[in-house]
Design a protein around this nucleic acid. Structure first.
Lengths: 309, 309
DNA sequence: ACAATACATGAATAATTACTCATGTACTAA
DNA sequence: TTAGTACATGAGTAATTATTCATGTATTGT
């Protein structure tokens, strides 16, 4: 009953490694060496006498035990964070910068990079709230938003942050099993993974249109409640997902996903914008965050371009 | 976003203090001094700049922040424990002693005492599974059970563990507000707190019968999904709960609850039994646990008797 | 008023954590 | 085959934790 617990730093490392599936990238996020991460994971593994990850050549995969434990740890971190946020808002003594954005973008782009911001501005607390859907920017609840859309919201100060490309991705192992599709229309014979939303269908149609393919009937495919889950299924060899570049930049770099048909340049018709209440954009915390965001976004776009070649 | 976490020992202390509403009792449970607990709680409070408990003379109460955070911590501990249990069972390499029992008894009696067992038998891991209802003893899933009932299950090895008294309890503060009831029938004019179960109504009737009162119509009262919640509501000055002695022994000793009408001796018509598969009772781990259980139960019954005087 | 109860605080110390550096090991790519 | 990638391991060290002891402080009970 009275199990021994590893230190929170070790559990934090576990959560980050599971997200990156890489000790090295988790180390970068947490500003420690790969060796520190390795020790932390080993500490948990020895303490609980389990294996959390298995080496697969130059990759690692979560074990079954790892798959079971990571969500518990992640939930705990999230819930404590959210509860403390609530408590502090209630106090009216909050001095944190509240950021609202889509869950998938937070998960795949912002959170892995936020350590850079924390490192650069250790005195600014960033409190993130996410949703699975686009929500109206509520200035009572957030100081800053990262919104996906066409821009021109009118009542908000907005700046274009990030434009993305859309492209199909799958895992290298999936390619080995099914063979490399030669033409875009070959994708119609493969399992297509997507989120539960009608706009995603349209997005697939747009991509096929840019690829010069006329689609008569979209094939059925597995559906997921969240983008990040569809992408995880792709990483897990279950099919082809249509991805936006910011979501999969790190996965492609890590070799977990492969971009299909790089020659088809299909630009996303929506972009990410930085938004806040007009007049607040020069407040020091907001300006600092905006500047940092722009820098990170520029770096990502540079990496997208490299990904095209 | 990247909040700092206290060490797990501190979070463990928080959970125990919240359960006991006493630093001293939490310290006893965790085999440390009161001072260690005080430091741990203070560490969390300083780190997060919140108050978790407030002193009320010789008592402490959870703050609002404390109320929000404790369930998160408790859930995490429980889920990690359960997940590790699952993982180890899957491995087939389990050497822990699996114990199944009712949630309320685990919460109010076994868990606060289990540190004694751990201390005495540090090499025996005890893994507890609980339910809110009486379940069939499943020897695939548990080595040992603590069952509530009449005994004589026939297909199980069983030993009477603990007989209890049933009596109404409320908080001292509730008594100050409503006045001390003079006669048992006066209780019918007070809010009676109970669990969502028809057998509890019968139990109240039995108690009134033993008190020499004929009840024409049971009054309405607040209902709760779990016994422990009804008792907590009583501690929180919300009314009178009908308690079984093992559930409230520690609360009464700590002065959080007061027994009403001690002269009414109403014995519970069900008892707790130690059960296991016949033939296994002499296995070293099971025998050790049974022996320890009997000792603890005898001590508790001694304390019940003292509580009658 | 004094005694009992019960948390709070500071100093001290041993144990554990949280890394880094250097090197090892295994797989993959060229 | 060699070089690159990426986790694994051991030694070392500074920082933090996890207490205990001694004492303080405030409330309650007699």
């Amino acid at each position: 009953m009275a199990i021994r617990f590893p230190p929170m730093a070790a559990l934090r490392a576990l959560e980050a490694v599971a997200r990156h599936l890489s000790y090295t990238h988790a180390a970068e996020e947490l500003f420690v060496t790969q060796s520190a991460i390795s020790h932390q994971i080993k500490h948990i593994e020895d303490l609980w006498e389990i294996k959390l990850f298995e080496r697969r050549g130059r990759r690692i995969v979560l074990t079954e035990a790892g798959h079971a434990l990571v969500p518990v740890v992640r939930d705990f971190i999230r819930r404590i964070t959210a509860t403390l946020e609530e408590i502090t808002e209630k106090d009216g003594s909050s001095s944190a910068l509240r950021v609202t954005l889509l869950q998938s973008f937070a998960f795949k782009w912002l959170v892995p990079r936020l350590g850079h911001f924390n490192h650069e501005y250790p005195d600014i607390d960033v409190w993130i709230s996410t949703s699975d859907e686009l929500v109206v920017f509520d200035s009572e609840k957030a100081d800053v938003g990262i919104r996906l859309g066409y821009g021109r919201w009118g009542n908000l100060h907005e700046e274009l942050l990030l434009q993305e490309y859309v492209f199909p991705v799958c895992s290298p192992h999936f390619l080995e099993q099914y063979g490399v599709p030669e033409n875009p229309e070959d994708l119609l014979n493969l399992p297509l993974l997507r989120r539960n939303a009608v706009d995603i269908l349209q997005r697939w149609r747009d991509w096929f249109k840019d690829a010069g393919v006329v689609v008569k009937k979209m094939p059925k495919g597995t559906q997921f409640p969240q983008t990040s889950l569809a992408l995880q299924a792709a990483i897990d060899d279950q099919g082809v997902a249509l991805a936006r570049s910011a979501h999969v930049l790190d996965d492609v770099k890590a070799g977990r996903l492969v971009r299909l048909f790089p020659k088809v340049k299909s630009k996303s018709n929506v972009s990410y914008f930085f938004v806040c209440v007009p007049g607040r954009e020069n407040e020091p915390q907001i300006a600092a965050f905006r500047d940092w965001l722009m820098r990170e976004a520029a770096q990502s776009e540079k990496e997208f371009e490299e990904m095209l070649t």
